[in-house]
């Protein structure tokens, strides 16, 4: 099973992971053309700055025991038994936001424009070349690793 592993010490806060995430979810866009000012521009990963600790990359962990899945009443969030990734089905979502409240990392959020769905990492649909954020990180602060669970 593949997971994004974070090395906080390496993060420079460049936010390239944000751009990559937004671009990956804006069809047909690339780093030159992705519209960062669009109301649809939503990143699924976050970099926070802490004066004491430096940059804190916040990414969906696709947890072994995902609180978001456990708290989801409509079945919109499910953990894929093969990939181990937590996937979200917008059509099943009741927008109760229990997942947002229960995520221990604060990585889930309602969408800005309509507030009717959840913005969540989809591991770039398990594309063969991996998640776009990882490819865009110039410091290898985030890497994909195979983990045995």
């Amino acid at each position: 099973m593949k997971r994004i592993i974070i090395d906080r010490e390496k993060c420079d806060g460049c936010l390239n992971c944000n751009i990559a995430c937004i671009s990956a979810h804006e069809e047909g866009s690339n780093f030159y053309t992705v519209n960062l000012q669009s109301p649809d521009a939503e990143t699924r990963n976050f970099i926070k700055f802490d004066a004491g600790k430096g940059y804190l990359p916040i990414f969906c962990r696709h947890c072994d025991e995902p609180e978001c899945v456990l708290s989801c009443m409509s079945g919109a969030l499910e953990k894929d038994p093969v990939s181990g990734h937590v996937q979200y089905d917008e059509n099943k979502c009741a927008a109760c936001y229990m997942c947002v409240m229960n995520c221990p990392f604060g990585v889930l959020k309602p969408d800005k424009k309509t507030r009717t769905k959840v913005i969540k990492c989809d591991f770039c649909d398990d594309k063969p070349d991996g998640p776009s954020c990882v490819k865009a990180c110039p410091k290898q602060a985030i890497v994909v690793k195979e983990v045995n669970l």
Binding site: L15, Y32, A136
Partner: peptide, 9 residues
């Protein structure tokens, strides 16, 4: 090879 998206734009 990894470029900054803000710089590119």
């Amino acid at each position: 090879s990894v470029k900054c998206g803000f710089g590119l734009q």
